[in-house]
Structure formats: structure tokens, C-alpha cells
């Protein structure tokens, strides 16, 4: 069964939303069970008292990246059928900076705020409310952002194309960098005073 299964027609399109709920459940369960339903645990990454976000996030990205590369190598998935989000360089950076400020103020990102909301965090409820307001304001003020929104379109570019190195080398370097970060994070965690939350 060569994937992606639904775009290839192996699984009928009608199942798309059923898988959406099931995969979403897995996503939500792992987020909550890893501690992403606590804003103070999440923010610990930036003060060095709890690096769970760094560890979970990079381990997840690497697991997915390596898994898909192996599947592609073995011919189990057609990598060209995967959705690669186009890179709009300006808005990716500016949007990221705006999200970063929001992250440091709110302590959640959208996914984690849903996980926290589900277990009864009222601050996550207002965070979610804020997101709706933010999306609405952006949409209404779109003419102001439009030029930036559309500028610097590099298309569905891969990081390996832009760096000009092979996929295997990049994957290897990313794994080495992550292991180094995890090692450093654990070292910092031991040095930094514990925060009770």
C-alpha cells in the first residue's frame, strides 16, 4: 500500500474526516499526557527549569522526518504527493515573531491551548477566545497585511534545497544537533532552581 493512502485512492475520500478525528485524538492525548496542558510547564523551556517542550517537539519532528524518509526510501510512500507548505519568507518570519510574543505572554500555542482547555484550564479558554479575536482582526484588516502576506514566495521549497545539501546529511546533522540540545538542556535543568507549579 503506497501512501499517502487517501490521495492515492487506497482509502476512499469519505474516510478523511473519520481519520481527522482519530488522528486528532492521538495528537491531543499525547500533548496532554506530555504536560502541554500546563502553560508554566511549557514556558519552563525559556527559563531552564523544564525542557519538556524542547524535548517533545524536536523528538517528534525528527521521528516524523526519519519515518517518512525511510518509507520513501523503501518505496512505501510517494514523497512528492505530500503537502509541502509553500515558504513565504517575509510572512513566515514576521508571523513567527508575532506568534513568539504571543507565546511568551499566553504560555500556549493554539494546539496546546486546546489540550489545556479540554482539562478545564480557564486561562486556556481566554487564550482560545483571544485567537478568534486575532484571526477576525487580521481578516478584517487584511488589506493592510496583504502585500506582506504575498511577498517572498519561494514555493514548496525544502530546507535541503535551500542549503544545497543531501537529505541524508541534513537528517544526520539535525539528529546530532537535537541530541546535543537534549544533553545541554538536561545539564541546565540540573543547575537551575526548581520551580513549583
Amino acid at each position: 500500500m503506497v501512501g499517502p493512502l487517501i490521495p492515492m485512492g487506497v482509502i476512499p475520500e469519505a474516510w478523511d474526516n473519520v481519520f481527522a478525528v482519530m488522528l486528532g485524538m492521538g495528537f491531543g492525548f499525547v500533548l496532554e499526557a506530555s504536560g502541554f496542558s500546563s502553560s508554566r510547564k511549557i514556558i519552563g523551556t525559556f527559563f531552564g527549569y523544564d525542557f519538556v517542550v524542547l524535548k517533545v517537539f524536536f523528538t517528534a519532528a525528527i521521528t516524523c522526518m526519519l519515518g517518512l524518509l525511510y518509507f520513501s526510501y523503501l518505496g512505501w510512500i510517494d514523497y512528492s504527493m505530500l503537502y509541502i507548505q509553500p515558504t513565504f519568507i517575509t510572512s513566515a518570519i514576521v508571523g513567527g515573531v508575532v506568534m513568539g510574543i504571543g507565546f511568551s505572554m499566553g504560555g500556549y500555542c493554539p494546539g496546546t491551548s486546546f489540550a489545556a482547555l479540554a482539562i478545564g484550564k480557564l486561562d486556556a479558554l481566554t487564550f482560545t477566545g483571544g485567537m478568534f479575536i486575532g484571526v477576525f482582526l487580521f481578516s478584517e484588516a487584511f488589506p493592510i497585511f496583504e502585500k506582506m502576506y504575498n511577498s517572498g514566495n519561494l514555493g514548496g521549497m525544502l530546507v535541503t534545497d535551500s542549503l544545497g545539501i543531501s537529505t541524508g546529511l541534513f537528517a544526520f546533522l539535525l539528529v546530532v544537533a537535537a541530541v546535543g540540545m537534549f544533553w545541554g538542556a538536561t545539564w541546565v535543568e540540573r543547575k537551575v532552581k526548581k520551580v513549583e507549579y
Binding site: G95, M99, M105, G106, F127, G134, V135, S139
Partner: peptide
Amino acid sequence: GGLLFGIGSQLAK
């Protein structure tokens, strides 16, 4: 924070 995330996520798609 949610408001800024709402704006930023639309910009960054």
C-alpha cells in the same frame, strides 16, 4: 497572547 497568536498564525499561514 491568544490574540497575537491569532494574527501571527494567519500571517505565517
